[in-house]
């Protein structure tokens, strides 16, 4: 816990049609940290961000962003904030450079000053030679990087990123991650939602797991793994794995999950299980350390969310 809280959420509640999609949610984000909000689809992540930005009015609780009450002073608070929304809303009527300059105007930045900032923003986004390009000529990854650059036109202290890499290929995701790490290193505060565990593990200093509108766990990525899950995972695949796991694995593991033709075995000491697996050569085995995804699945279950 370093620095003052730049975002303070207490008892946040938001109803849609009488149903609470966010219910009694509290968390604080401190200056200079990267805070992740994880959760399956429909957990209330985007609604939480929209409340924080004053884009929708909560039905209960108090919010403070950059020391200002939200939604009462949300517009003023947004002068110090950058937003990367879940769905691109770049202005297709403008070129790359024009998008940045026009967006700066909405922050009361003079066009001349905005134009002076463009080269550095384009460089940050890896779009130096694309300034004159039309938006529809950009790839998905370039659009995300431009959206990120656009969120920086006002040199914000706080950045909100709603699923910043959803729909991108691995190369494009790594580029975005590099950019975000540079921003944190530069002292900016990041608040991001994601359902990619590797993204959260890589980027976030601290994170919370949301489900059904409530926070069900909050810690550092390593803290969550250490506290909430057995350290070793053995995945077993193959025909007849269900029957084999029930009879042979269950007695020697701490937790067993069966899904399709895969058995996930969780434990501290894998030796007994591996010994038994040695007598079942028809099964394929993957042994690995537990990761955030295991924690996530344990907390939120394996059921599909739509």
């Amino acid at each position: 816990m370093s620095g003052a809280a730049v975002l303070d959420v207490r008892g946040l509640r938001k109803l849609y049609g009488g149903r609470a999609v966010v219910d009694n949610l509290s968390f604080a984000v401190h200056a200079g940290e990267c805070f992740g909000i994880l959760g399956p689809n429909g957990a209330g992540k985007t609604t939480t961000l929209r409340c924080c930005l004053g884009l929708t009015n909560p039905d209960g609780g108090t919010l403070e962003l950059g020391g200002l009450p939200v939604p009462a002073s949300a517009r003023l608070a947004r002068y110090r904030v950058g937003v990367v929304p879940q769905f691109d809303n770049l202005d297709p009527d403008f070129t790359v450079t024009e998008n940045l300059v026009m967006y700066a105007r909405y922050f009361d930045i003079a066009a001349r000053d905005a134009r002076a900032r463009v080269p550095a923003l384009l460089e940050f986004a890896g779009l130096t030679d694309r300034g004159a390009s039309r938006i529809d000529a950009l790839s998905g990854g370039m659009k995300r990087r431009l959206t990120l650059a656009r969120a920086l036109v006002n040199d914000p202290d706080i950045l909100f990123l709603d699923e910043p890499t959803t729909g991108l290929d691995p190369q494009a995701r790594h580029l975005i991650w590099d950019g975000l790490k540079r921003l944190v290193a530069g002292g900016k505060t990041l608040i991001l939602t994601t359902h990619f565990m590797d993204e959260a593990e890589r980027l976030c200093d601290r994170l919370c797991v949301m489900d059904s509108g409530a926070i069900i766990a909050e810690d550092t990525p390593h803290g969550l793994i250490a506290r909430l899950i057995e350290p070793v995972v053995v995945e077993v695949y193959g025909e007849g794995v269900r029957e084999w796991a029930q009879s042979h694995a269950r007695p020697v593991v701490e937790r067993l999950e069966l899904t399709g033709e895969t058995a996930f075995c969780y434990m501290h000491d894998p030796a007994p299980l591996l010994e038994r697996l040695g007598q079942a050569p028809e099964l394929r085995v993957l042994r690995r350390a537990a990761n955030l995804e295991d924690v996530f699945i344990k907390l939120t279950g394996r059921d599909i969310r739509d």
């Binding site: 930005l53 884009l55 517009r75 947004r78 002068y79 929304p85 967006y103 909405y106 006002n154």
Partner: peptide
């Protein structure tokens, strides 16, 4: 929507 993420109403 994009404009509303800036300090505009």
């Amino acid at each position: 929507e994009g404009v509303l993420h800036a300090p505009m109403t």
